[in-house]
Every structure is written in structure tokens, then in C-alpha cells.
Amino acid sequence: MALPIYASRTEKIWFWAFRIFCGLVLLFLILPILVIVPLSFSDSSFLTYPITGYSLQWYREIFTAGGPWMESLKNSLIIAPFATLLAMILGTLAAIGLNQAHFPGKGLLMALILSPMIVPLIIVAVGMYFFFATIGLLNSYTGLILAHAVLGVPFVVITVNATLQGFDYNQMRAGASLGASPTRTFFDIVLPQILPGVISGGLFAFATSFDEVVVALFLASPTERTLPMQMFSGIRENISPAIAALATLLIIMSVLLLLVMEWLRRRGEKLSQAGV
């Protein structure tokens, strides 16, 4: 959308006004994320510019073994992988099933499976709070894992579903006709081809669990306090540069996630093109 040489004066003004406006929107999107990074290296205990001196003390505070940050990180690293695994298994199986046959009510079933993405988190949180209280799963890792698996499952179904769009089911028949068991067909033929979708769905599910605070606030006691819960109370009570240090680490993690997702997307595109 370059500007033609014969553009009139008003066209030029509009063109640049439009570009400047878009530039400002991009700045609005990225600036808050960039601003917090330098503050994590500040030696002051206030989150303000200008930075007078630099230090790594806030990173030291976060990485103190036995401190609140490491304890909550440990809890998150227990809950998120199990929730992701559960979401990946259930979501992948369901996506394959949904793609294999047509039956009445399929649209409704899909809406049910995707609804955890849409239903307000507070409703999920309060509902599970009462239910888990009656069956004794309140304040337990199991409860949080189940809850986060529910929230992560729609992403797995969506991404696996997308990779299955280009999948040729005759390959499964070929496998079966050559004597492979359904399990072997799945692991040797289907899984390698849909793996990009399974992994990117898993990453979505992991990121969801790793950043989820509303449901965790209702289901977890201080013993199972997750990293987002710790951040929430940190921001609420006393926002210190330790938050900025943790935020910097989380931003690095999201950059990595973004890179992996992009790599998976390209790989998936290549695979589906090769399939055609």
C-alpha cells in the first residue's frame, strides 16, 4: 500500500496521518511491556523513572530458595504441566473423534467443548469452589489441576482440529490394512502429523494455567499458592521492583512462547502443503 507518485496533497496528508496513528497504536501495545523491564534492574525500591542506580537485588529476592516467589513458582510448575497433559490427552482424542464422523448435535457439542473459553472466569471459579468443597478437592493440587485442565482444553481442541483439516484418513486405513493396531496407527501415523497442533494447543493450555488467577484465588489455600496468586497479592498490597523482575522473566517466557508458536505454525503449514 505504497503512496503513488501522482498522489495529491490531501492524499499525502491522509496517508501520513494514518501511518502515524497506526504507529501510536503499536506504541500503545508494546510500550507498557518495554517500560517495566529496565525498572527490574533499579536499586531503588520504587517503581519510578529516572533510574538512579542499577542492581540485581530484585532478582536475588525472587530467586531466594524458600521465599514466597520460589514457593509459588514451584506450585505453578506442579499444577501447569499436569493440567496441560490432561488437557492435551482429552482434547486431542476429542478433536480426532469430532473430525471422524458426522452426527446430529455436533455443533452443540463443539459449543460445549469451547465454552470454558467464553464463560466468565468468576462463574467457573465460584461453581468449582462450591463443588470442590463438597467433594473434598478444595485446597488441593488435584482440584487446581482439574480446573486448569478444563480451562485449557478448548485451545487443544481448536489447534488439533485445525491441523486435522488437511489430514488424509486413508492413511489410517492403510495402516490398519497392513496389520497395525489402532494404537500403533495413532502413535506411528497420526500423532507425528498432528504434533504441531497438539504442541501449540498444549502451549496455550500451559500459558493459560501459568497465568490464571481468578479460579486459583478461590480453589487454593496459601499452601498451593500459585505464581499468579503471589503476583496478584504483590501488586495489590505493595508493588515493588520484585514484581518488575518477575514480569521481565515472564516477558522473556512469552517471547520464547511466541517464537515456538511461530515455528510450529510454519512447520504445520509446510506439513499440510507437503500433504497436498
Binding site: 511491556i33 517500560v35 503476583m231 514480569a247 516477558i251
Partner: peptide, 20 residues
Amino acid sequence: FVLLPFWTSLLVRTAAWIVL
């Protein structure tokens, strides 16, 4: 510029706005 905020923790972005 669009996807990085999308992938960044909601709490990080909220904290960033307090700072700003």
C-alpha cells in the same frame, strides 16, 4: 507488536499500567 502483548501475562500488563 500485537502478538507479544497477547502472549504476555495479564498480571504483568496490569502491573505495567500501574507503573505507567
